[in-house]
Write a protein that binds this DNA or RNA. Sequence first.
DNA 1: ATCATATTTGACAGCGCTGTCAAAAAGATA
DNA 2: TATCTTTTTGACAGCGCTGTCAAATATGAT
Lengths: 348, 348
Amino acid sequence: MAATLPKMKDVAELAGVSIKTVSRVLNNEPHVQHAVRERVQDAVSSLGYVPSKSARSLRGSRSYSINMICHSDRSNYINAIQFGAVMACQKRGYQLTISLVDTFEDKSVAEVKAAFERITTHPKPDGMLLVAPLANNPIVGQALEELGMRVVRIGPAGVTDNDMRVAIDERQAAFEMTEHLLDLGHTRIGFVRGKENQAATEERFLGYKAALLARGISMDSKWVRKGQFKFRSGVAAAEKLFELDQPVTAIFASNDDMAAGVMMVANRQGIKVPEDLSIVGFDDSEIAENMWPMLTTVRQPLQQFGEVAALKLIESLGQPVSPDTAPTILPHQMVIRKSASKPRSAAT
Amino acid sequence: MAATLPKMKDVAELAGVSIKTVSRVLNNEPHVQHAVRERVQDAVSSLGYVPSKSARSLRGSRSYSINMICHSDRSNYINAIQFGAVMACQKRGYQLTISLVDTFEDKSVAEVKAAFERITTHPKPDGMLLVAPLANNPIVGQALEELGMRVVRIGPAGVTDNDMRVAIDERQAAFEMTEHLLDLGHTRIGFVRGKENQAATEERFLGYKAALLARGISMDSKWVRKGQFKFRSGVAAAEKLFELDQPVTAIFASNDDMAAGVMMVANRQGIKVPEDLSIVGFDDSEIAENMWPMLTTVRQPLQQFGEVAALKLIESLGQPVSPDTAPTILPHQMVIRKSASKPRSAAT
DNA sequence: ATCATATTTGACAGCGCTGTCAAAAAGATA
DNA sequence: TATCTTTTTGACAGCGCTGTCAAATATGAT
């Protein structure tokens, strides 16, 4: 281990220039001759010099850290994203810091701002990663805007979507999953909604509805149950769905946890999956492989969400953000496992 | 939003002292009169002053950040711990940063050191949180020690345990869980081990063994299967265990994921839980409630692990670390749900 | 060759804080 | 009261870097 880390002064001496010139090279500022720039870069790499983030951020500009908010209701969803974000940060010499906030339900802009003010100082992160559903909280959005924070959001947008954002086309994905069931021969397909007031809930539902419509099947509102994106709500929804006079032959739960709940009730009631009932989910979270039969679902590239979002954020720093950037839509993927098959009626 | 954040100078002026005195108060240094100290503290809180971490760390001492390593194999275990750590950091004005390292299997000390050297600069964290199994990797330990990093470990120790560490008494917990099964009337109890070379695997097994011994039951090695702490390995273990000529009436899987695997096989083979087979797990992870019947298990206070470890780390900074600190043992908790009951034979 | 202009470079201050060291105030002793 | 010791306080430098602004150098037009 070197006795002391090399400083900019050392680089300057080795390259035979002033420290300011070194600073210019490191920050890609103009007005440095090509030859000088190269000499400095050689000196930097031969000394293994890394600029001190503390000094840089003290001086007022960047902090070389970005912050990811995690709310108290942590889930696998966020974890995978965080993993990707750390990877991207590490590649670019940034640090990912984690902060914790409450859900900000029924909070005023001023309160939210105060909370973020504490988080966003010392060092003030250069930007923030906001994950759905927090990403779509208008109060949080306004507070952060007033604080001048650069933000990249992750997850489906509500109505507006002219912000920096990374997501999949949830509606299309739900459409395809419903089509999959339809292709298998199902015509009576149940649907378990997610938590209300989350963009994903409506998007996925709209995809389901559109797919039925496209095949000329008129949706029966009895097929649709509310849910909370939680295992328990899948259980509750399944119990109701199984009581129908004319039961559905397939259930599309709008996330995997709820699908697991549905599956559990089926197992408990002796309903054979997939022979008597097809079940599909959404997310491809870990639980999808930890049930029997393994769950057919839609994979969201969560880790990639984090990676792409962090990169997008880092690259946007410095540039002014255009008022209407389009969201980055990443490809989703159908994951066909064993929980959905032809309905019994069609099998004959 | 204040036009500019208050600085130490502002506090000093308000309190009518020099900035150095303010600094002393903030750092709990001696040689400040009680009255002055209070005046300064009032000024600090009335201005809402927060010291600048950049300036502090530039000045050479602390960075006011601690780093938590997450390896590529993330799990719920780590997430819950991280959550607690963030909370504690936030309370103490520290930032938690996350870094990513590979598993360091078959790496030399020099390689590991190089990897950490990159992570631990700019800003150099004041300390690190290491979670099992990384916490017990001797190469990592040596590398970090050579880098002069203060470390707090989380999870059960292997042989040595005179380091700063937070854990539960895993052996005792497994002992109690086995006793629970014994108390219910089981005498033939299967056990699914975890991943080899992890301290938890052996500790939990020893607890199981000791409990049998204490009741004068001689353990049959056919009851014990290897596992990997993964759902799949629970499945594999269960399949073998069910083939026994004289089958076990209860299975203690040494974590919940494996217990879920066991449960799945039971369901699939029409074995009624808990009537025909009791199943218990370890960890009380989310999945424990997401199965049917809900899993009886041992709760590790994971979030508290993170909190206590971070606090312990922060408080140890400055002090020299005594060469043989005892680990902090947190209480575990039996979580009795529905997956274990009297064996059929005993019920009659 | 001369002057005006554009480009490249460097000197220097200072970001907010803490360590050093010396000055001031308080207490102890004769 | 005078002197010495201990405690409390403050002045100031400087951590490593970047912004400002002026100096040096190169380029172009006459």
